[in-house]
Amino acid sequence: MADLKSMEPTETLDVLGRVCPYPLVLTKKKLEKMNSGDLLKILCDAPASAEDSIPRYAEKQGYPIEVVKLEDKGYWEIYIQKK
């Protein structure tokens, strides 16, 4: 599996400060509009969304995903490649 976080993302989605479930809702919507092969980078600070619901959604769809936690900044960077 390619290292997603070292690749240039096609688009970046900032959902910092958004309340559950908006991070998931906006991610789902964004991915639906993107093309196959595109890489989406998401900035998210909601633990349940970043660690749980977004990864579960990506796995369900069969999209490769990497979740990187930036502990010093208190948020996550999530990389999802649409298939």
Partner: peptide, 22 residues
């Protein structure tokens, strides 16, 4: 609840929103 990220709102929602039953 925190360790399990156990939000029942999410538990119910995901069933119809992303068809996930975990």
């Amino acid at each position: 609840l925190q360790r399990g990220r156990y939000c029942m709102n999410t538990a119910f929602r995901d069933v119809i929103f992303i068809n996930d039953y975990n």
